[in-house]
Each structure stands twice: as C-alpha cells, then as structure tokens.
Design a protein around this nucleic acid. Sequence first.
DNA 1: AGACGTACCTGACCGC
DNA 2: TGCGGTCAGGTACGTC
Length: 291
Amino acid sequence: MPELPEVETVRLGLKPALEDRVILKAQIRRGDLRRPFPARFTERLEGRAVRALRRRAKYILADLDSGETLVIHLGMSGRMSVYAAGHRRRLGDYVYNPAPESAGHDKHDHVILDTDAPARIVFNDHRRFGLMTLIATDALEENPLFEDIGIEPLSAGFGAAYLAQALAGKKPPVKSALLDQRVVAGLGNIYVCEALFLAHISPKRLAGAVRRDEVVRLARAIKSVLKAAIKAGGSTLRDHAQATGDPGNFQHRFLVYGREGKPCKGTRCGGTVKRIVQAGRSSFYCPRCQT
DNA sequence: AGACGTACCTGACCGC
DNA sequence: TGCGGTCAGGTACGTC
C-alpha cells in the first residue's frame, strides 16, 4: 500500500480519534512486527494525551505529552482503522464504522488503542513489514529512522532547485533515485511512475543526466500527482484503506502504473504502456511520450 | 561511499 | 480442489 498519499490519508482519518485525545488502553497481540515492540510499550502509551499527529515521509508521528513520539510505519500492508465506540459514528468530519464485537480480533490485528474520543484504533498488518516504536520527540531527527530522510515533496522548500542538486551526479536511473528516501521523502513505486510520465521523462534516464527543464517539469509533476492522490484518498490496489475502512480512489486515475499493454493516455500519442524491471521493481512508462 | 541484490512475511492470483 | 510458482505499495542489511 502505502506511499505518501496513503499515509497522509490515514493520518487525516486518525486525527479526530487521536489528536488531543487520551489513550486509555493499549494492547499488543504479538511481540513484534518488523522489529520487536519497545520495552513497556503499552505502559508508555496508556494515560498519555496525543498533542499532535504529524507525518514525516511514510511515517505517522503521534507526539505524546510524555515527551515521547509514537512512530508508526505501515510497511506494505498495514492498515489503521478507526471504530467509533458505541452508537457514535461521527468523529470530527469523518464517519467511521461502528465498533463490531470483532474489532481487534482479526488474526492480523496486532495493536489496539482505545481513546477517549471515544474510539478504537486497530493496526492490522498481514505481512508485518510495518513498525511501531517510541522515540523521544526531541531526538527524532537524529534517530536512524529519520536522519537520512530527504525533503518533504509538498513543502515549500521542494522545487526544481532542490531536485536538480539532489539528482546531480547520481549514477542510478532517475526511477531508482526518486525511490531513494534520501532524495525525496515519501515517494514509492506508483507515484514515481506517474510523476515521470507526467514529466515526459523515461524511467531509464540516468538521474544525473536529467536536464534542467526536465527537472522543472518533474518537480511540478511530483507535487501535482501527490496532491491529487491525497485528495482522492490514496490508491487502493489490495491493502490500502482509509481510517474509515473505505478504499482510496486514485487507482482509477493511474496513467501508466499497472497499465502494461494498454494504450497510452497521453494526448495524440497512440503508444502502448510498457513494463520493465529496474532494481527489482516494476516500472511502467510510455516509450513514445517519455524519452 | 554508494549501488546492488536479497531477505523479511503473508496472501492473492495464475496455470496446471 | 489443490499445489506450486510468482508477484506485491517498503525498508534494512550484507557484499562488492
């Protein structure tokens, strides 16, 4: 699932259940995800108020009033679902599932947080590539998880100037460079493919050989595709769901991703979308539009 | 230092 | 119906 737009969608959906709320009870149903939960994990969460719910790259960050931050990564298949307790189904601007008796009892429901919204938040991750940990808030930036992560693509500081210097001298293909979280934070396979199509740049081009005028288009394309995807609630292929349980909608608007053999959607093109493998990942592109 | 391949884990899907 | 093989949105680690 989750690239920046999916993580941002989940964060927005969690907000009314978590931000400025108190975590009344925390439960874990196994000892680890991708890595073990930290010592006394549930005790360090219970009774804590969430001061802010932020996102950095593909991580959701819940700043607690204890000075620690709950760090959440959804991996490939993680979901965070909110169930409104009792008969209350509306939290803020969002309508959630009522709490079924089974909420938190699926085989892959690994973490359950009950807050005073009141709401139940369930973290489900069948592949267990996800991560949850606690890090001192004022030490986040120096933490190995974050110290090498690049600029946020939707921040004011991200533009052609930044991207040009970030790609300069890089030997890998531009496709691989954009997947590198040190270059730009939060991009994944889908949105890199889509952004390169929008910018008319072949994924095979070497990062350091992308011309300045192309970098200008690429920076704009990255921003626009991410914004549109967030607006659509992200892309659901298999696993992504918004916190309400609803799928995202952006997958219906893919221009190249997953469209191998289908006609290019570029105006006046008439070409066919091709799939190649780069660094072990599928790249989709139109050889006629993207050069 | 940087680039590449591989491993992590489960489920869905396809062909036989 | 069942089995084996392949693939999947991400990251981290070992190796060269």
